[in-house]
Design a protein around this nucleic acid. Structure first.
Length: 388
DNA sequence: AATCGGCGCAACCGCGCGCAC
DNA sequence: AGTGCGCGCGGTTGCGCCGAT
């Protein structure tokens, strides 16, 4: 079995070790002590670049920051792996990337989180879980690392104090009641969360790509203005979207953030039967089809769209032939009201299939909770357009 | 004044994914 | 198809700060 030298920088030493053991004589690693010694020697031989002698770790000094900043301002970061050497830094590329993305980037807002930001984090966490990068796309100028830290040190504890499970975002009482006869609506709400979660994830992905294009635009302009250093692409990641890129066509064109529900979801998702804000009422609660649609949303970069489209007819057929038919189940709950976010506001609608007043109250509470989240989700993505 | 423990945050680690060859 | 590379993400760690004792 081959030694996975390719795993160097990625730290897959476990695989490396296992593979190494498979290709050496059993006598070499017959004891734990010998095995450990053997691994240490091999690791020293095949050392990851980050562990190369002389490469610094730990806190960054102002001088290092200055070097990194100066280099990126001048040339863009290009390949992170080769950057440290070019910039004269005794760091690994990964360390440089982290320092830049989490600290040095010019568009980072530091300092206390506002109440609004806190609410946003909590609500998005309810939908997305620990997908910090996706959450960060809805909080302009905040990094995923910062949000993650803030969650772990402040918000999580606060929720626990309030008797709310920070993982499920359910109140203790709620957990109890959902384990009894009221699981149906809980499941419905959970399903709604999944819809939004998938949508947000897709939006986050596209926002990231948008962000890259913005930065590239900014840095290309920067380079052009300086017109000194040779033109070098700042970002090696390629996007396969069809959006208008900066400097394409007329120079005034701004790159629209694809995270906008209107500009992105309507165009891309509606044809696929994926619920957008205005199209939610055209879907139902068919588990199979919705699962497939969720898959489509979560993989909805344009490069994936063709794949998604291959299955489009199958999905539509399933939606139409499904047990509930269009207009029932999830969607009817979601958009039963013509105003607001479409959740049923009338007691009759809301309690259809629900037995008594307490269940109604329970559902109503959840409805309000998710309404607030869904409203947030609707209003926030456009912010990502102004990230840069 | 010294020690201890909790807290906050920057940085690191390990993993997985996408892309190019 | 297999492999190497580069990168992003989420989890974890380490360290400095600060208040309590």
């Amino acid at each position: 079995m081959p030694i996975h030298v390719r795993d160097r920088e990625k730290g897959r030493l476990q695989n490396l070790n296992r593979d190494i053991f498979c290709c050496v004589s059993p006598s070499i690693y017959q004891s734990d002590a010998k095995r450990a010694a053997f691994v240490i020697i091999l690791i020293m031989i095949i050392s990851p670049c980050c562990d190369k002698a002389g490469l610094k770790k730990g806190p960054w000094t102002p001088e290092e920051d200055q070097k990194l900043l100066a280099y990126i301002e001048e040339h863009g970061h290009g390949s992170w792996r080769s950057l440290p050497e070019k910039a004269g830094l005794q760091r690994c590329g990964k360390s440089c990337r982290l320092r830049w993305t989490n600290y040095l980037r010019p568009d980072i807002k530091r300092g206390k989180f506002t109440v609004q930001e806190e609410q946003t984090i909590i609500q998005l966490h309810a939908l997305l879980g620990n997908r910090w990068s996706a959450i960060a796309t809805h909080l302009p100028k905040r990094t995923d690392n910062e949000i993650k830290n803030y969650w772990n040190t402040h918000l999580k504890k606060r929720l626990i104090k309030m008797g709310i499970d920070p993982v499920t975002h359910k109140h203790k009482n709620e957990t109890l009641s959902s384990s009894t006869g009221q699981s149906k609506n809980a499941a419905t709400l959970s399903h709604m969360a999944q819809w939004e979660s998938a949508r947000l994830e897709a939006e986050a992905r596209l926002a990231r790509e948008s962000k890259l294009l913005h930065l590239q635009h900014y840095q290309n302009n920067n380079n052009l203005n300086k017109s000194a250093a040779p033109q070098q692409h700042c970002f090696t990641q390629k996007t396969s979207t069809n959006w208008t890129k900066p400097n394409q066509g007329n120079g005034d064109q701004q790159l629209e953030s694809p995270t906008s529900t209107v500009t992105f979801s309507e165009n891309l998702l509606m044809p696929l039967g994926i619920p957008t804000d205005s199209s939610r009422n055209r879907n139902n609660n068919n588990n199979e089809s919705s699962a497939m649609i969720e898959l489509a949303v979560s993989s909805s970069t344009s490069s994936d769209v063709s794949l998604v489209k291959e299955h489009e007819h199958d999905w539509i057929r399933q939606i139409n032939c499904g047990s509930g038919g269009i207009g029932e189940g999830f969607t009817s709950l979601l958009i039963g009201d013509s105003v607001g976010r479409g959740l049923p506001t009338g007691k009759n609608e809301a309690t259809a299939g629900v037995g008594n007043e307490s269940e109604y109250n329970y559902y109503e509470d959840n409805k309000n909770y998710w309404n607030s989240i869904l409203n947030l989700v609707d209003s926030s993505p456009s912010d990502s357009a102004t990230m840069f």
